[in-house]
Design a protein around this nucleic acid. Structure first.
Lengths: 198, 198
DNA sequence: GTCGACATGTAACCAGTTACATGATTAA
DNA sequence: TTAATCATGTAACTGGTTACATGTCGAC
């Protein structure tokens, strides 16, 4: 051991912060923005309070260094940089093959699953909002794809492609499903229209 | 108000439990299994301890009733049933149009994004495991699709279709991405092979 | 006689959010 | 002068997991 602290396994969130710092030194504020621009699309975006908490954790484990930077025109900041030990830890995690299946939490699908208890019109409305949100995602990702082309690491592009595939599939599904529900609306007219049955 | 308790908005998890009870009375144990069979695929599967906690919450709010059922051959159980008030609450939630975007947390994509710090072979391994997991998901969903056809509510089928769309898109993406990474492996042979660069 | 299904729960913990608190600079 | 951006953090809380604790019955 090069330092006095031992190594309890880090949660993925801490490793995500460490990963972002592998691109270069940043303040907590910078990290929040970097996360919102990148990993929020396929992982998640932490509250800033948690970012600061993770930074303390990483510093305590000797994986990042903290440097106080004074500024005249802006408030002072603390800039964090990944250490050699941090790079090793990051690399060890990336190379380890403990596969974690991804999780997917869709309130829209949850509502649809309980659709028997809902009004069709409301379900359709929810699906339309979902469709809209996925279409927005698609256009944003297309812009991102165009913007990153040249200089960036390949890996950015590959993750964008994953998003594009997902958005595309979601859009087709939502369109079909809306059509199906509209069909039901026609064949069961007047059912559950403001009345409370049973 | 029909009861003495007021109505602080319920978290989606509580509503998910309530929704499952809309299919019929169940014990906590039954609920855990029902969740694992259905909503775990598109929402999430709670620890049993949390199921019991949610049931207490719902009972406290008068949305479910609890009945102690004695059994000779099995341990006694507590069977929960949705109340009229519970059905109203569920319906109100389903019909409300506060859209919540779904969340997607993929450790695989997170690792890929930081791919510059990893060995290509390890990345490929991770992607292969992801591919495998999605293929398994696809076959399971195909079985589920075949099994549910006749009697079940349409909504079950619609959510299965969402899963099928997602699995299909993920598989294509993973295959392409693995191919791309294998290409990189050929063009940059020997790079980062056990050495520590920098 | 051992394992798995049935059945319920507590305690301790970790993860993560929201609201609060502070305060300077700059552009509209 | 008002709002946005820069900048960091604490406190209180909710959500959710893991490990522990207990016990019966039926099948192999």
């Amino acid at each position: 051991m090069t330092t006095d602290h031992h190594n309890p396994d880090l949660p993925a969130t801490a490793l995500a912060v460490l990963g972002l710092l592998s691109f270069g030194p940043m303040s907590g504020y910078d990290l929040k923005q970097a996360a919102d621009r990148s990993i929020r699309h396929f992982y998640w975006s932490p509250a800033k309070s948690q970012i600061y908490a993770e930074l303390r954790r990483l510093r305590g484990a000797g994986l990042v260094t903290e440097e106080h930077v004074e500024q005249e025109t802006r408030p002072d900041k603390r800039v964090y940089a990944i250490t050699d030990e941090g790079r090793l830890k990051l690399r060890a995690w990336l190379n380890s093959d403990n596969y974690e299946p991804d999780m997917h939490k869709s309130t829209t699908l949850l509502k649809l699953f309980f659709g028997n208890n809902a009004d069709l019109a409301a379900l359709i409305r929810t699906l339309e909002q979902d469709l809209e949100s996925k279409q927005k995602m698609l256009t944003e990702l297309r812009e991102a794809e165009a913007a990153c082309k040249a200089t960036d690491p390949v890996f950015t592009l590959l993750t964008i492609r994953a998003g594009l595939a997902y958005a595309g599939a979601s859009i087709s599904w939502a369109e079909e499903t809306i059509a199906t529900l509209r069909g039901l609306e026609m064949t069961h007219p007047g059912t559950r229209k403001g009345r409370n049955e049973r």
